[in-house]
Design a protein around this nucleic acid. Structure first.
Length: 484
RNA sequence: GGCGGCGUACCCAAGUGGCUAAGGGAGAGGUCUGCAAAACCUUUAUGCAGCGGUUCAAAUCCGCUCGCCGCCUCCA
C-alpha cells in the first residue's frame, strides 16, 4: 500500500510502526458554526481511509478531536448571548447530526481540547524547561528558531516567511514566527489555572497533547485539510518533536479543497454551502459518492449540476440491484449462455483485485469507483444474456457479497433500492406517497389489460410530471424516482 | 515576492514511460418494448493547454510559453 506523504512530497510504501497496527489522528473541527461541505470532505476522506485500513486487516486506532475552546467560539458566544461551552455543545451536536447522515463513523477516541488542559500545561512546562518556549506576561510562546527543522512539512524557509509575513507582528514575541502555546486570558474570558496565571491553550498544543495521550509520542498517520499544513501541522511537529525528542507522525495526509467557481470555499469569501443546505436538496449518499469520485488530494469544483450527475450515476447502481433482486426472486427465462457465464465469472474474480489495487495506490477512490461501475455493466450484460437459472443465482449471490465488501470500505451503495427511492422522494419533494403510486400503477394496469394505451400513457405521463418513472416488466410495473 | 499544485472528449474524472487513453453524466443511432423506461450495443479525444527536447517508445520525463488555482493570516 502506498500513501502520498506531505512530509516527503511523494508516495511511500506504508509501513506502520507496529506491524498490523495503525495509529491515526485527524484534525476535526472547531465547533463554533455549522459544518460546510469542505468539512464533510475531510471527514469522509479520513473515514474511508480508516475503513480501508480495517479492510486490510489492520488494527486501527483512530483519534479525531474537537476544538472546543478558541477565539471564534468566544466571539460566537457573545453574538448568540450564550456561554462558550453552550456554543461548543450546540455545534458538536450539529456536527454529529450532519456526519451521521453522511455515513461518517465515529472515531475510536474523540477528545476535546478542554478535557486535556492539564496535559497541555505539562507539555508547555516541559518546553520551557527544555528551552524551546518562553513566557511573556502570562502567555507562553514557542521559539521557532530553537527548532532547526521548522518548516520541514510546509517546505518553508524561515527567513522567507518573515520577509513575506503578512501577520501583524506581536512585540512580545522574540521572533515574528513564534506562536502561542498558552494565552493569557482577558477579563471575562474562559480561563484555566496555570503556572503562568489564568489563561487558555493556544490552538496547536491540543493536538500534540491529545495525540500523545491517546496514541503515542510517535504514531503512523496524521491528517487534515491541506490548509492545516501551515501553520497548524508545522507547529504541531515543532512543539511535539521538541518536547519528546522523537519523530511525531510518520505519514502526513492532506485532502484538497472544495471550490466554487474555481475559488476555495471559505467563510471570508462567503461562498460556502453548509452540509445542511445541501442535504435539503440531495441524498447524503449522493454527496458521499460525489466527494469520493475525485481523488482526495485534488480540488473539487462544487455545483448542483455535478451533484445531479452523481445522483444519476448512483441511480444506475440501484437500478442494477433491482434487476439482480428481480432475477434472484423470480423465475426468469432460461437460456443457454455458457460464454456469458464464463466471462462474468472472470469479471467477478477480478473485481475486488482491481478495487484493492486502486485503493492501495494512495486511496484512489475515483479509480475504485470506476472499476465498480465497470463491474455494474458486466452484471447488466450478464443479466441481459438470460442465463440459466441455478448457476446464475450463485454468481449473482457472489456479486452481492463483493458489493458488500466494497460497501464496507466506501460506505456507499449499502442501502436497498427501496430505501434509495424513498429517500429520493423526500429530497426531491415528490408530492406522491408510495401508496398513491401503487394505486396509479394498478389503475394503469387495468387500462393496459384492456389495451387502452391512451389511458395507460396518460397515467404514466401524469406520474412522470411528478418525477416518478414507471417501468413495465413482464410480471408487473416497477416505479422509481427520476434522478438527475 | 517565496513555495506548491493544476490544465485529459460537450461536462465531471482516472491514468504519471510501452496493450485499442478507465469510469460516470449528457447527446446521436440501434436492439428490446403496445409505446416508453431500464439495460445492452455502436458512436462523441489518431489525441491529453501550446511549442520544443530526451527516448526505440511520453498525456506521463525535461525546458520554455500561456491560462487557472492554493498556501505564506483563522480556515477542512
Amino acid at each position: 500500500m502506498r500513501i502520498y506523504n506531505t512530509l516527503t512530497n511523494r508516495k511511500e510504501e506504508f509501513i506502520p510502526l507496529t506491524s498490523g497496527k495503525v495509529m491515526m489522528y485527524a484534525c476535526g473541527v472547531t465547533v463554533y458554526d455549522y459544518c460546510h461541505i469542505g468539512h464533510a470532505r475531510s471527514a469522509i476522506v479520513f473515514d474511508v481511509i480508516r475503513r480501508y485500513l480495517k479492510y486490510k486487516s489492520f488494527d486501527v486506532k483512530y483519534v479525531r478531536n474537537f476544538t472546543d475552546i478558541d477565539d471564534k467560539i468566544i466571539n460566537k458566544a457573545q453574538q448568540e448571548g450564550i456561554t462558550w461551552d453552550a456554543v461548543a455543545k450546540k455545534y458538536t451536536d450539529e456536527y454529529y447530526r450532519d456526519m451521521d447522515r453522511l455515513g461518517v463513523g465515529r472515531a475510536d477516541v474523540e477528545p476535546r481540547a478542554t478535557e486535556h488542559i492539564s496535559e497541555m500545561i505539562a507539555i508547555v512546562k516541559g518546553l520551557i524547561d527544555k528551552g524551546y518556549a518562553y513566557e511573556v506576561e502570562g502567555s507562553v510562546y514557542f521559539a521557532v528558531d530553537k527548532f532547526s527543522e521548522y518548516g520541514k512539512l510546509s517546505k518553508r524557509d524561515m527567513e522567507e516567511m518573515i520577509a513575506g509575513a503578512r501577520v501583524e507582528v506581536d512585540e512580545r514575541k522574540r521572533n515574528p514566527m513564534d506562536f502561542a502555546l498558552w494565552k493569557k486570558s482577558k477579563e471575562g474570558e474562559p480561563s484555566w489555572e496555570s503556572p503562568w496565571g489564568l489563561g487558555r491553550p493556544g490552538w496547536h498544543i491540543e493536538c500534540t497533547a491529545m495525540s500523545i495521550k491517546h496514541l503515542s509520542e510517535s504514531f503512523d498517520i496524521h491528517g487534515g485539510g491541506a490548509d492545516l499544513i501551515f501553520p497548524h501541522h508545522e507547529n504541531e511537529i515543532a512543539q511535539s518533536e521538541a518536547f519528546t525528542g522523537k519523530p511525531f507522525a510518520r505519514y502526513w495526509i492532506h485532502n484538497g479543497f472544495i471550490t466554487i467557481d474555481k475559488e476555495k470555499m471559505s467563510k471570508s469569501l462567503d461562498n460556502f454551502f453548509t452540509i445542511k443546505e445541501i442535504l435539503d436538496k440531495f441524498d447524503p449518499e449522493v454527496i458521499r459518492l460525489f466527494l469520493l469520485s475525485t481523488h482526495y488530494r485534488s480540488p473539487i469544483e462544487f455545483s448542483d449540476e455535478q451533484l445531479r450527475e452523481t445522483e444519476s450515476s448512483l441511480d444506475r447502481f440501484y437500478s442494477t440491484i433491482i434487476r439482480m433482486n428481480n432475477f434472484l426472486e423470480k423465475d426468469e427465462d432460461k437460456g443457454s449462455s455458457l460464454d456469458a457465464e464464463n466471462t462474468f465469472k472472470e469479471r467477478i474474480s477480478s473485481f475486488m483485485e482491481k478495487f484493492e489495487e486502486a485503493m492501495d495506490d494512495d486511496f484512489n477512490t475515483a479509480l475504485a469507483l470506476g472499476h465498480t461501475f465497470e463491474f455494474i455493466r458486466d452484471v447488466n450484460k450478464f443479466l441481459d444474456s438470460r442465463p440459466s437459472e441455478q448457476k446464475a443465482k450463485e454468481l449473482l449471490q457472489k456479486t452481492k457479497e463483493l458489493f458488500s465488501e466494497a460497501i464496507d470500505v466506501l460506505n456507499i451503495f449499502g442501502r436497498t433500492p427501496q430505501e434509495w427511492y424513498l429517500s429520493l422522494m423526500v429530497t426531491k419533494k415528490i408530492g406522491f406517497s408510495e401508496k398513491d403510486i401503487i394505486e396509479k400503477i394498478r389503475e394503469r394496469q387495468d387500462a393496459r389489460q384492456n389495451k387502452d394505451w391512451a389511458r395507460a400513457d396518460m397515467i404514466r405521463k401524469e406520474l412522470e410530471e411528478k418525477g416518478i418513472i414507471l417501468e413495465d416488466k413482464k410480471d408487473g410495473t416497477d416505479w422509481k424516482i427520476k434522478s438527475g
